[in-house]
């Protein structure tokens, strides 16, 4: 097996993450904007720790990479429920 899926919502493979890092992406939002990792239904809950570790391992850095900002809603919510007062 020469590749591994990292983001299931958006179908993003390890090779694509590494390509985004190669291109200069060095934060989770930077990788996300290049290959859509973490843009899907789970909003990075599954893939973000993995991408963070890949960044740590490949970029030889001491500080944890910048992560995606948690934004409301914290889980998917029907628009009809959002507008209820």
């Amino acid at each position: 097996m020469d590749d591994t899926i990292i983001c299931r919502c958006e179908d993003v493979y390890l090779s694509e993450i590494l390509g985004a890092i190669e291109e200069g992406g060095n934060s989770f939002p930077g990788i996300k904007k290049r290959v859509r990792v973490g843009m899907g239904y789970c909003q990075g809950r599954v893939c973000q720790p993995m991408v963070s570790n890949i960044l740590l391992a490949t970029c030889q850095r001491n500080t944890r990479p910048v992560l995606q900002r948690a934004q409301p809603p914290i889980r998917p919510v029907l628009l009809g429920d959002i507008i209820k007062k």
Partner: peptide, 15 residues
């Protein structure tokens, strides 16, 4: 929802 009533049934995942 005023423009597209059907959006009531659609989930938002981020803002």
């Amino acid at each position: 929802i005023r423009a597209f009533p059907c959006l009531k049934k659609v989930r938002m995942i981020r803002s």
